[in-house]
């Protein structure tokens, strides 16, 4: 009897503690949502509670300023993803399925880069881009994301393709498939999960990267979300409602992707760890 009664209470204690932990973690974001519907007066009256009426016009004010950053970020992300997937899937396929002189060397050269964080190259890469006259363009943003992405992408795709049973490729070959045909009709369809993971890692990288766009972009119309928001904060420092609405708008695409594709997202977070391969 005592056992039967103490069991549920222990579980209830566990749940309460976990709910408190989750609530503390989510508090800043809930605060952001609540504040985004307020005027400064409402905020001054009570900064935690929801207060009516809700001011949806904060969102249209914020949207006008934040939307260009979102489009820039999305454009840069899509361009980077396309380049990464094309380059890395061909390279990963060739490295996994063919033997040739220099194979180990090329793969080793890719693996070494896993250990080098992009930030270490910040200064020299900036000068290279400046000499090429690429500052304040979309290309200057795409380049480092592509260079970083093909490294992880090639490794993930190569490992994945190595795991595909050879029998499948043999069967395709007996049916007369060429290398290009096997790449297109056998390997690509089977690799969709890993391609999706790479795409998500890239989106998250482009959305979060800060120092590179800060240094290479000074034209506000080309800014991506992270640097754009910092500028946006400077513009709206005293207008809390639109400020928070802008933060929320800038977060929503990433939060939506995370919610619907969290399995691939988490695979990406754990797969992106150096030394995991």
């Amino acid at each position: 009897m005592t056992i039967a009664r103490s069991r549920p209470t222990r579980q209830v204690r566990l749940k309460t503690t976990l709910i408190v932990l989750a609530a503390v973690g989510l508090a800043p974001y809930l605060f952001m949502v609540v504040t985004s519907f307020k005027t400064n007066q409402q905020f001054a009256d009570s900064f935690w509670q929801i207060s009516f009426p809700l001011h949806f016009e904060n969102y249209s004010v914020a949207w006008n300023q934040v939307a260009p950053y979102l489009f820039n970020t999305a454009f840069v992300a899509v361009l980077s993803i396309v380049l990464i997937l094309v380059i890395a899937s061909i390279a990963g396929f060739v490295l996994a399925r063919y033997r040739f002189a220099g194979r180990a060397f090329i793969y080793g050269a890719v693996l070494v880069l896993m250990m080098v964080p992009g930030l270490a190259n910040l200064i020299p890469l900036f000068i290279i881009m400046k000499d090429l006259g690429l500052l304040n363009t979309y290309i200057v943003l795409v380049i480092p994301y592509t260079a970083g992405g093909v490294v992880l992408g090639t490794i993930l795709i190569r490992n994945f393709v190595e795991g595909i049973p050879q029998a499948i490729f043999d069967a395709a070959r007996i049916d007369g498939a060429s290398g290009a045909r096997m790449y297109r009709s056998v390997m690509l369809p089977l690799s969709l999960p890993v391609l999706g993971t790479i795409a998500l890692i890239t989106v998250s990288e482009v959305w979060n990267d800060f120092f590179w766009p800060l240094l290479v972009i000074s034209d506000n119309s080309l800014r991506t979300v992270s640097v754009g928001l910092q500028f946006f904060q400077g513009q709206n420092v005293t207008d809390y409602g639109p400020l928070m609405a802008g933060y929320l708008i800038a977060s929503l695409p990433l939060v939506a992707l995370f919610t619907f594709l969290s399995k691939y997202f988490l695979a990406g977070v754990q797969g992106g760890v150096p030394g995991a391969h």
Partner: peptide, 20 residues
């Protein structure tokens, strides 16, 4: 609970920093 605990990961780092 796991989902609620990891949701903050989905927010861009700059938003977290600015709200704090």
């Amino acid at each position: 609970m796991r989902t609620l605990l990891i949701i903050p990961m989905a927010f861009p780092g700059v938003v977290t920093a600015l709200v704090w």
